[in-house]
């Protein structure tokens, strides 16, 4: 019985992490209409940069949370730069934009290999969260609970941002109908930069927060990108609720698939996505078909 409970709890934790990763992916997809293939790389880059701060490779060691914030800001800046300097040059040419993000993801992967080498980096669990929490007979690592709490806080924060602020209203307008948003005076191309930076930052944040349980290694980007893709196809692009529900579903499928059918884990992971594509191409909560 305990096995199932632990598996369930791990699935929820992983789902929370996936939500941090895929919320930005979904917003970028919803607004710019492109699957950002650098998203896995941004996740990995965030994890590496954060690990560098935590381990103290630069000569000074930082507190985990401070390192997480710094890594998030750094990667958000990288994302904004990539959007401004490269994607901006290909306005309206979504195919070319996707290919540019693909090229960038290879460059990022090799860059990380060059700087941080091929050995996995382990990030120590932040102080105070190394222990366990007891629920009756069940024992659960405190850090995994913290990830769930962080994911919920970020989800609420993002929802407030999108639903209650002027910027959020502009983003929603851009997702629903970019042309009409332009007509009423919203500078959609500036929103692109903001959303891209936001998505990059969230991915990097997920990377460092996930560091203590996933560790950081070359190929992490290729492991995470398909997951984000599945979440967004399941949930529907541009929908926050969609990424939340999709993340939890994928978190469960991924963990249960790994535990019960390790040889077919990938197949099991992608089956629901194919089903959704066949039966409801816009995703569970999406508005438009990609």
């Amino acid at each position: 019985m305990n096995f199932w409970l632990v598996l369930t709890a791990n699935s929820v934790t992983f789902g929370g992490l996936l939500f941090l990763l895929s919320a930005g992916f979904s917003l970028i997809f919803g607004l710019m209409r492109i699957p950002n293939l650098t998203h896995g790389s941004l996740f990995m880059l965030g994890a590496y940069v954060g690990a560098t701060f935590v381990v103290g490779l630069l000569g000074f060691q930082l507190n985990f949370w401070l390192a997480a914030i710094l890594a998030t800001l750094a990667v958000a800046a990288v994302g904004a730069l990539a959007e401004r300097l490269l994607l901006r040059r290909l306005p309206g040419d979504q195919l070319a934009q996707v290919l540019v993000t693909l090229g960038l993801s290879f460059m990022a992967a090799d860059f990380c290999l060059m700087v941080w080498g091929g050995d996995p980096l382990n990030i120590a669990t932040p102080g105070g969260l190394g222990g366990f929490v007891r629920f009756g007979v069940m024992v659960f690592p405190a850090y995994r609970l913290a990830i769930i709490v962080i994911a919920i806080v970020v989800a609420v924060g993002l929802w407030l941002l999108l639903d209650r602020t002027r910027l959020g209203a502009m983003i929603r307008a851009g997702v629903d109908d970019p042309d009409m948003a332009r007509v009423v005076g919203i500078r959609v191309s500036q929103l692109f930069t903001v959303v891209f930076a936001l998505g990059a930052g969230l991915a990097a944040f997920a990377g460092i927060i996930g560091g203590p349980i996933l560790s950081v290694y070359p190929g992490l980007d290729q492991d995470m990108l398909p997951l984000a893709l599945v979440v967004v196809i399941l949930g529907g692009s541009g929908s926050l609720l969609g990424s939340f529900v999709g993340s939890i579903i994928v978190g469960f499928i991924y963990n249960f698939g790994q535990a019960l059918l390790p040889e077919l884990a990938y197949f099991v992971l992608f089956m629901p996505m194919l089903l959704v594509l066949l039966l409801r191409p816009q995703g569970l909560f999406g508005r438009h078909v990609p």
Binding site: L37, V98, L229, I233, F270, V289, P290
Partner: peptide, 17 residues
């Protein structure tokens, strides 16, 4: 079932499978 970006995403996912 799809063209353009949708086709890219589905083929990417199938390749990963």
């Amino acid at each position: 079932r799809s063209t353009g970006i949708g086709f890219i995403m589905i083929t990417l996912a199938l390749g990963e499978i």
